[in-house]
């Protein structure tokens, strides 16, 4: 059976002043519909590059990404991306930022209907009262909520999250992790999360893809996470399975993520 999102032998080579740099080599994963998958690895291992190629912002040098068995050739509205920084347009209010996406996904709607829908998505992420505010008037966490609302308003089949909580303080980060988890429980949309936070990956994912260190990063270990759903922070952090998985992930990151490279050298 064809998986809805497949990455096949993905290789990305950058031309640098000092020669060619192969960031990712022969990276393959396949993601079934509705799964919450995390790409976890050391900073700079190329996980964001993989996500960026999935989103269609960069092109693979070899291999590629298929949606429903068809290779993608650029960005698509069925794949919504949330960036590390909120990346809102500062001259538009929260509502207008979301409206921009609504208008792209459903171009035939009247302006009023677009506004109504934009507010619906802002409400989903819990910030309906900030609709008229400019991004500069909002906290980082709230801005990132707007960015999530903007992504959701496309009603995408795949939600691609590129370290979306990396710039937030830990309390806000917890809140947003719970928000994303709640939203996922409701619609079971396929999510690919890039992160370097072990606990975050364990808390939210069905499966963790551990990447080896770059250059020539590839899949190091795939780890299914069978913690009971719906999850909450307290019960997860007192679960023995959680600690076993956590030890396994940390062991990989500390001892095994470099082995592949040494073998290659």
């Amino acid at each position: 059976m064809i998986k809805p999102l497949e990455v096949t032998s993905l290789t990305k080579v950058f031309d640098t002043p000092t020669g060619k740099n192969t960031v990712v080599k022969d990276f393959s994963i396949s993601i079934p519909a509705g799964q919450f998958v995390s790409l976890l690895g050391h900073s700079g291992c190329g996980k964001s590059t993989v996500l960026s190629i999935m989103a269609g912002l960069q092109e693979a040098t070899f291999g590629g990404v298929c949606v429903d068995g068809r290779e993608i050739s650029g960005p698509g509205l069925e794949r919504a991306l949330v960036f590390q920084s909120p990346s809102l347009l500062p001259w538009f209010s929260a509502e207008e930022n979301v409206m921009l996406a609504v208008a792209q996904a459903r171009p035939k709607l009247s302006r009023n209907e677009q506004r109504r829908q934009a507010n619906h998505y802002l409400e989903m992420v819990g910030i309906a009262e900030y609709a008229k505010q400019l991004p500069a008037q909002l906290s980082q966490g709230t801005q990132q909520r707007v960015a999530i609302a903007r992504a959701l308003s496309l009603e995408p089949r795949f939600l691609l999250l590129d370290e979306p909580f990396g710039m937030l303080d830990s309390i806000t980060r917890f809140e947003l992790q719970d928000l994303v988890l709640d939203l996922w429980e409701k619609d079971r949309r396929t999510v690919v999360l890039v992160t370097h936070d072990v606990d975050e990956a364990l808390y939210v994912s069905d499966r963790i893809i551990l990447m080896t260190d770059g250059p020539e990063a590839q899949v190091g270990l795939e780890l299914p996470i069978h913690l009971p759903r719906p999850r909450d922070r307290r019960s997860v952090s007192s679960n023995a399975e959680y600690f076993r998985l956590r030890a396994q992930v940390i062991d990989f990151l500390e001892h095994h993520s470099k082995q592949f490279q040494e073998k290659a050298a």
Binding site: A55, L57, G74, P75, G76, F83, S87, L89, A101, L154
Partner: peptide, 12 residues
């Protein structure tokens, strides 16, 4: 670059 990427992702 972020703004450019937003425009691309939203296929403006």
């Amino acid at each position: 670059e972020d703004y450019r990427n937003v425009a691309k992702v939203l296929q403006l």
